[in-house]
Amino acid sequence: MQVPAPFEYARATSVRDVLELLERHGPESHVIAGGHSLLPMMKLRLARPEWLIDINDVVELRHIAEDGDVLRVGALARHADLLASEVVGRLFPLVHDAEKVIADPVVRNRGTIGGSLGQADPAEDLTTVCDVLRAQVVIAGPSGERVVDMADFHRGPYETACEQNELITEVRFPIRARSGSAYEKVERRVGDWAVGAAGAALQMADDGTIADAAIGLTALGLEGLATDAAAVLVGQRPSEGLVAEAGRLAAEASSPVEDQRGPVDYKRHLADELTRRVLRRALDRAGATAVQGG
């Protein structure tokens, strides 16, 4: 039987409450939301918090709201909430692409966007999603609130800009006209971590060229965006040749490691192929003229 080490439990009902509890109980206290990363780690004694601060009742953090040119998503929004949200699917279809393949439907009833980003597992999908959408993360702390770009938020595997006495409260997605996005993952079975995945977000210019592009990879050894792959797209008219070139560059930027999910050359092939697929789909969703071939 896997049992966590003993701890004390406190339930918070507001952001202020969470911050006070974190302050009071110090570095050995830990926030819990869905618990589907933290509890397994506690069972294996990889995590041994002395205090667990349950934030599931902090209902102010469960919103999904369009607000001018930004979509605000509360950190406590469940994967299932994101998947059920019409506005999320309409504005950012890659979020739905990704959410459909995150864990399984039952786990998605509990897991949260704040928890996924905060855990920062290298095979976690929403980090790539938020990277390519150039999202911002709102972090509340003792001295107030700060807004951090994804590039600065995600510092590497299991490491983010959120300090121990702080709380991720919201993720902000900029809404952009004439945009399209897509995400695709290869997994060995339902609910498994990615063998590899790619995400892309594009914005088209009035003249039919690509105005802006962002490409990211999951579990393929790339931190942040595949900038060279995106750069070849900008200012160009979509074509299959262009998509292939971006795929090649994304694969070049990847640095996968061999594990039980596959060898390096296979994973690099995935970086190429999945980048092409998400670019074609993102272009299609952005209303770009159909890409020939593929």
Partner: peptide, 22 residues
Amino acid sequence: CGTCVVLVDGEPVKSCTALAAM
């Protein structure tokens, strides 16, 4: 495995990954 699924407020939840306290 999901054999521990129970409904919490009508939603399926894996009860091996939830605390009684929560």
